[in-house]
């Protein structure tokens, strides 16, 4: 290949050109998230991570595709299944791992854990553990984009279970009524804990859930990062251009149980395999890149070894951090504490 050809190298997906640099970035980030989540699973098994821990293995293309489409100043609101989203956003992975371990260098100083990841500097606003709660909050972020007229949009993520909450429809109505710049994104991974979509939803085509609010819907293959990024670009452009909110249904699948305590006996091995081996987003982009001569099987293997090493080093470094200082118990409750008022620290025991 000549230097010129190399520069032009890439993949054209459905009329959209992806340069090799972007392809590598997307691939590497997806693989990184996969290995990071595996490590988190391991650390959980060793009882180093406590409580609830929701992994996103299988859903990496959604996290990464979304972040390649969104601008750095767009707001992203997530549920508790947030490791992949905050990593895709570019937050320091050691801080994410430290948070899982409840350490002082955690992204929220060890006060949140797996479910409550926030990074305000990256416009990543949680990390919300009450199913559906983030949707009205996301509405507020979108309202703020409109009020400040800052050109940003808000991407508000919910699950196929979360979309059944009443607050979601209150938010759809107001977002559409006031034409707010919001992309509502439902990660349809087919299950809400042990409840399959068809056992919980009268309308299983979730992208249609906005129809009575005049919110257009798009169903996107969330196992294909190129397709996802392309369609997400369109959805974001729709709302950024002032046409009001849009609802995106990302078709995806979680490979692991709902949380670490879930053996996922409510689904068949065959079903899991069908997604895992048939539609895996990482295997897919690897095959596409090899076919386009942008990488080789060996180069991907090497990449994988490098990432595993990197993740191991991250875990080690996070683990070496101290637990939060005990004084942290009392900080971040109020911005303007009122001196002498019980039950503030140092007051009546």
């Amino acid at each position: 290949m000549s230097a010129k050809q190399k520069q032009d190298a890439g993949i054209t997906h459905d009329g959209v050109f992806f340069a090799q640099e972007e392809l590598h970035k997307m691939h590497d980030k997806m693989l990184f998230i996969r290995r990071f989540e595996e490590k988190a699973g391991q650390m959980y098994g060793l009882k180093k991570i406590g409580g609830f821990c929701h992994l996103c293995n299988g859903q990496e293309a959604v996290c990464v595709g979304l972040n390649h489409a969104a601008r750095p100043d767009d707001n992203i609101m997530s549920s508790y299944r947030d490791h992949g989203h905050i990593l895709a956003r570019g937050t320091e992975p050691t801080a994410v791992m430290a948070e899982l371990l409840g350490r002082s260098g955690g992204v929220v100083k060890g006060k949140g854990g797996s479910m409550h990841m926030f990074d305000a500097s990256k416009h990543f606003a949680g990390g919300n553990g009450i199913v559906g709660e983030q949707v009205p909050i996301g509405l507020g972020f979108g309202f703020s984009n409109w009020y400040k007229d800052d050109g940003g949009v808000t991407i508000c993520i919910m699950g196929d279970g979360g979309i059944n909450q009443g607050a979601v429809y209150e938010s759809f109505n107001m977002a559409a009524l006031w034409k707010l710049p919001i992309v509502f994104m439902v990660e349809n991974n087919q299950y809400a804990m042990g409840t399959s979509l068809d056992r919980a939803s009268a309308e299983t085509q979730l992208f249609k859930r906005g129809i009575s609010f005049k919110i257009p819907g798009m169903k996107i293959d969330g196992m294909d990062v190129l397709e996802f990024k392309k369609k997400m670009d369109e959805a974001i452009e729709h709302t950024r251009s002032g046409q009001g909110p849009i609802l995106v249904e990302a078709m995806t699948y979680r490979y692991r149980g709902h949380s670490m305590s879930d053996p996922a006996t409510y689904r068949t091995r065959a079903e899991v395999d069908e997604w895992r081996t048939g539609r895996d987003p990482i295997a897919r982009i690897q095959a596409q890149m090899i076919k386009a001569d942008l990488a080789t099987e060996e180069s991907f293997k090497q990449k994988d070894r490098d990432i595993k090493k990197e993740v191991a080093a991250i875990a080690k470094s996070a683990e070496s951090q101290p637990e939060p200082d005990e004084a942290e118990l009392w900080t971040d409750i109020y911005t303007d504490p009122i001196a002498g008022a019980y039950p503030y620290p140092g007051k009546v025991g």
Binding site: A125, L139, G140, F141, S144, G166, N173, M174, L177
Partner: peptide, 18 residues
């Protein structure tokens, strides 16, 4: 607003966070 207390309370929270 519409009669939608949970929704607009949450809108306020999100707007305040920004």
């Amino acid at each position: 607003t519409p009669i939608t207390e949970l929704g607009f309370a949450g809108l306020g929270v999100g707007a305040a966070m920004t």
